[in-house]
Structures are given as structure tokens and as C-alpha cells.
Design a protein around this nucleic acid. Structure first.
Lengths: 238, 238
DNA sequence: ACAATAGTGTCTGTTAGACAGTATCGC
DNA sequence: GCGATACTGTCTAACAGACACTATTGT
């Protein structure tokens, strides 16, 4: 019976300077020494897969609470790792954009990089991590449409303007502030208003909201008008 | 370094008698001898994950072409298989309802069973397969809304009535035939009309369609009539 | 005052949902 | 004719998108 190594790899995304960034690490040892790679590592002997993902996330970001983490897909092509037959379970993590940008980068070779740096023949990534990153970014973009996932990029309390900035960063297209405001505040269960307000952005102070209890947004917030197209998911093997 | 066994397990769904059915096999050997389980098996030494999934699918159903197959999720809790540390990559397959219902059942202990048989404390399934099946069914239900996946349950050429029957079977709720017809025939790229017609259902012959090229349905076909949306009629608004 | 952001109202075109009505088969 | 299914048209309420307008802050 063939035996495998099993790893977890993380696509950790956050918003920095209005664009979508991914956490990458510089490899210190072969294979792919000196190349960028997604953070990850081997699953331990008595460890469940989510536990391994949370452990790696905490090692890289020092964060555990308030982080959205979901399984993305698994990759196991023969030869994807020259050290041996390896299957990796990839996870998608979304961090609030208010997280200290240097978290995870201290005393290590980790860095935030715009995801576009690794698309379309840009910077190379080790192993099949370019494909994994692309799948994670596409998952995040798609889920913003029909789920309240955008709030995972925001701190616990946030303004409608901050939430809109997330959509604009992830989709790369501007959104009408007035229509967006009406849409998200009128969707029952999507946002919970607080009695607080914030004026960090200049201009009139904005009400602060928390995530609501809704987990399926109907009707969705569409990116149809932005002209963005959704590539076919790589897990669809037809 | 811990080593793992890696398997693929299949959630194979089709429509039989107007309800959603799953393919299950009766186990001949321990563990869980005599219990129902999802079809699956070990990934071979030089085999990619999709290749293993297709091989298992073909072994159980004799089908390879015209079947929708996509990765579902991976499961790897310690102790989920008493024979050793095992990670399984689960796949979701959708078969046309016109497939011979006995396919995959000959010379084996495989059978089609309504998925409801295994829900909510019904028939037990081996290992963690009840969870995997539930995840697969929910994935199928959700994807019908915003993708043309329902056509995967239909033969290559099908009528609007057959397609509607798929939605009604998967969601368990009736749909207005007139509005459904208008919706799917007016969505560009969703259906491709042929010059043929069919009258197998009695009544006026219906035009036959093929799957279109669209892969993201916008706006979606909603499950709103099943009670998923919040009430809107607010009489207290001034 | 002015810039900037927050939030509301209003108009228009499109669509979902409800359902009347017509078309074309088998019996 | 009658039942069954296919398909078209019509009405209404709701919503998306566009955008004018008001509100409240900092400078």
C-alpha cells in the first residue's frame, strides 16, 4: 500500500492599501530554496486537518480568534513535491485588514504580497502553489457575492465604507457608495448596527456595524456590472 | 515523519423516481462489515487525485464520459479509519437520471438509496461517510442555484420539463412551470435549443435542449419559495 | 467656505412571481 | 372532447443601477 506525506498549505488573504494581499514565505532549504511559497507544513501524527491548519496559521500570524478559515481543496499530483509522494490540503484564511501588517513577518521570512504579483507569469511560487493561490483568490471573490464573507476582512466593528472598500479591493472595481449602502443595510441579518460611530475616514462620522447572523445572502451582491469574469474552478475535472 | 494512507471516496448522486439518490456499497470485510459505505478506494502509487476519482467512478458505474465530477472536501480525523492514519479526498459525481438504475449494481453489492435514508439518524454509514454524504448533498443543492449543474442530472438532450423535475427533486419543492420555462430559456448561454422535440411525457411535444456554455448563472434560480428569504412586507415603515 | 464621507430619496428599466390564456399532443 | 404538458403574454411588486440631494464632520 502506497504511503503518503500529508501537508496543509494556507492561502492567507488580507486587504493592504486597497488591494488583495497574500502571505508568502521565503524558503530556506531545497527544494525551491529562496523561492516564495505559501505557508504550510506537515500534519502531525495525532492531529486533525483543521487543527493542523489552525496551528500553521497561528505560527505564521500569531492569530487564532476572529479569523475566517475554511478548507479550499486538496492537491496530490505525483511529483508535485520532489521529496516524496505528498498530498496537501489547502485552506483559505481571511484576516482583518486592520491586522498589524508586520504580524507574521517578524523574525521570519514571511511577507505580504499583492496577489497580482503571482498571477499571469509574475513572481514564481514553489511547488503548485501558484495554482493553489489562484484557486483561493477565486474562491474569495466568488464567496463575496453570496455570503457575508467580506466582513471577515474587517475588524469586529466596521463602517459601511470599510466594507465597501473590501469589495472594491477584492473585485478591483469601484462600487456606487449610495446603492451599496442601501443594499447592505437593508438586507435583513447581514449587518447588526451598533450605537457607536467612527470618523476615522474624515467626513461625516459613520455608524459602526457588526457581522450579522445571516450566512447566505439572497439576492447576492453581483459583480456582473464590473465586467469581471469567473474562471472555471480547477477542482472541476470535466 | 508521519505517513498516511490516502483514499478517494465518491458521493454519486442521481435522480430516481423524483427524489435524490446516492450510490452506496455494502462492505464485505471489517471494519464496518455489512454496513453501507460510500464507494471509494486507495489512491495508487503514481496516480493523480482526479485520476483516482475517475477510476473509482468507472469501477462502480461503468461511466466516464458525460459525468460531472468535482472535488468536494478532505477528511482526515485521527481514528476515522481503524486500519491506520487515513486521509480521504471526497468527490461529488452527478449522473443523468436516465442512466440505467442497475448500472453499478451488477455483480456487486452496490445500490441506489434515497439520500434521506441516511439523514437524521436513519441508516448508518461506515466511517465518517454520513458527514461526507451530507456535505455532498448540500453542495449539490447550493450549486443548482447559481450554476447550470442541474443539466448534469439530465441526458445530453433534455426538455425544460425534465430540467425542472431535477430542481424539484433536489430541492423537494414544486416550481411554477411557466416562470421556470421563461427563466431558463431567456438566460443567455444556459440552454442551447435543438431542432428536435420529444413527447415522452405525454401532452404537447417539448423542444429538446443541450447544455449551454454558461458556467455561472446570474441572476440565480433561487430557493426563495422554500422559505429561505426573510419577509419583506413591513407595515411599520413610515 | 470647502472638501470629504455618510446617508436618503427618486426615477427608470428589469425581473420574479402569480396566473390567464393558447398550442399541440394522446386517448 | 378531455386531460396533459408546452409555451406565451400580462400584471404587479420589488429591486438594481443611476444620480440628485441633504447631513455632519475636519481643515
Amino acid at each position: 500500500m502506497q504511503e503518503f506525506f500529508v501537508t496543509v498549505d494556507l492561502v492567507v488573504l488580507t486587504i493592504l492599501d486597497g488591494s488583495l494581499n497574500a502571505l508568502v514565505v521565503k524558503r530556506k532549504y531545497p527544494p525551491f530554496e529562496g523561492s516564495w511559497a505559501l505557508p504550510g507544513g506537515y500534519v502531525a501524527a495525532d492531529e486533525d486537518l483543521p487543527a493542523a491548519a489552525y496551528r500553521e496559521l497561528e505560527e505564521e500570524t500569531n492569530l487564532r480568534e476572529g479569523v475566517h478559515l475554511e478548507q479550499l481543496a486538496s492537491y496530490g499530483a505525483p511529483g508535485r513535491d520532489p521529496r516524496g509522494r505528498t498530498v496537501t490540503i489547502a485552506w483559505l484564511a481571511l484576516l482583518p485588514s486592520s491586522s498589524d501588517p508586520s504580524a507574521g513577518t517578524d523574525a521570519s521570512d514571511a511577507a505580504w504580497r499583492p496577489v497580482t504579483d503571482f498571477m499571469e507569469g509574475g513572481l514564481p511560487l514553489a511547488f503548485d502553489h501558484a495554482q493553489i493561490l489562484a484557486d483561493g483568490v477565486e474562491r474569495a471573490r466568488a464567496k463575496l457575492e453570496y455570503s457575508p464573507l467580506a466582513a471577515a476582512f474587517c475588524p469586529p466593528e466596521f463602517t459601511v465604507g470599510q466594507l465597501r472598500a473590501v469589495y472594491e479591493a477584492v473585485w478591483g472595481a469601484p462600487i456606487d457608495p449610495r446603492n451599496f449602502h442601501r443594499k447592505v443595510t437593508h438586507a435583513p441579518g447581514f449587518l447588526e448596527p451598533t450605537s457607536q460611530a467612527s470618523n476615522v475616514d474624515g467626513g461625516r462620522p459613520a455608524r459602526l456595524y457588526r457581522r450579522g447572523t445571516l450566512d447566505l445572502l439572497n439576492p447576492p451582491i453581483t459583480r456582473a456590472t464590473t465586467g469581471l469574469t469567473a474562471p472555471q474552478g480547477s477542482t472541476d475535472q470535466s
